[in-house]
Nucleic acid binder design. Structure first.
Lengths: 189, 189
DNA sequence: TGCAACTACCTAAAGCTTTTAGGCAAGCCC
DNA sequence: GGGCTTGCCTAAAAGCTTTAGGTAGTTGCA
């Protein structure tokens, strides 16, 4: 009986692919076992439980997103950086809807603190260095940008905008324009 | 054997309460049957299937949210209306996290079109009448507002902001201020 | 090279959820 | 009060999760 060569890493990676194909909700230990043509119980040597798998996929997604964002930000500043950053989120969600859904998983505080989520916040802050904001306005702005990107992408992904004209492409660039304008003229309290 | 007096309406309503108590993910036909002290199969006379229950909760949540928003908007305009609208979302999500999560459920196009989701879009447009935007900028702005409110609330609910100072209360009002400023000075293409 | 230890994958089993099919009896309608 | 509708039941099949304990492939060391 040949061994399948399972490792936690391979399982999480395959789980991420599965998520993109059938949706994050449908990712199950059973489905994953089927994919490796292996009995379900075998996976429990590599995964603590089902939640462990989902968390693993979420962490992978956060990492991939942060890597892409870091790459996109290199050598850019101001509005250029803002647009590049925004596009990374949107493109990733379109290419990997299951992984993106995974990245929204609620992590317990320790896991979250050790995740690539921290890098995301740092990069957002780096973008804001191109605008003239002082604390605590910078923090407010970090949260605004996070909200807009996450909110827009998840509404678009969920089909929230699909019924109406004009197309979402145009809206996306206009929203980035608007955010840039807002950050350059951030209102005093 | 006394009858429990089940109806689809009562089941959906109880499902919504269950969602708020244990989380929308944990809402299951079995748990609902337990709550009514009734056998699981009995619920299938009133619900087509498990998805049907979840959809019902989502529609209920959308309706409740729209009702609250309509009430809050009555007699207000401009920034006042914007802030009231925003607070409805945030407060509802805090009071009814399970229902709010349900409202994010992806509905099939027909169900979505018949849902209270349409009223939400109409109300957002009504708020924008207080600002000087023409089509298609109004549509872009509708989408921006939807993104910010949804994004902010779901990040806050998911604990995304919980680690850092300053507190989210302050951020929320500053974001509403910022949106108001942005809508009054919406950048030309 | 051969044996011991390790570990990857297995079988078995219990408990939970979903869903369908068919049955009995409660409550309304005359 | 007798019949009809229908609300809730039992039974059963199928899928997912998780644990316990067994077997065989692989590695490492003498």
């Amino acid at each position: 009986m040949a061994r399948a060569g399972l490792t936690t890493e391979r399982l999480v990676r395959a789980g991420a692919e599965l998520a993109d194909e059938v949706g994050f909700e449908q990712v199950t230990v059973s489905a994953l076992a089927r994919r490796f043509d292996v009995k379900v119980a075998s996976l429990y040597s590599h995964l603590k439980n089902s939640q462990d798998l989902k968390t693993g996929i979420a962490l992978l997604a956060l990492e991939e997103l942060a890597d892409r964002a870091a790459h996109a930000l290199a050598g850019r500043a101001g509005k250029d950086a803002l647009a590049a950053f925004a596009n990374v989120y949107r493109d990733y969600a379109r290419e990997h809807p299951g992984r993106y859904a995974a990245a929204q998983l609620r992590l317990d505080p320790q896991t979250a603190a050790a995740s690539a989520g921290v890098r995301h916040a740092q990069m957002t802050r780096a973008i804001l260095r191109g605008y003239d904001l002082t604390e605590p306005d910078q923090t407010h702005a970090v949260r605004l940008l996070g909200s807009v990107f996450h909110g827009y992408v998840s509404l678009e992904l969920g089909g929230g905008f699909s019924h109406s004209a004009p197309d979402t492409e145009e809206t996306w660039t206009r929203i980035v324009d608007a955010l840039d304008a807002l950050l350059r003229n951030w209102p005093a309290p």
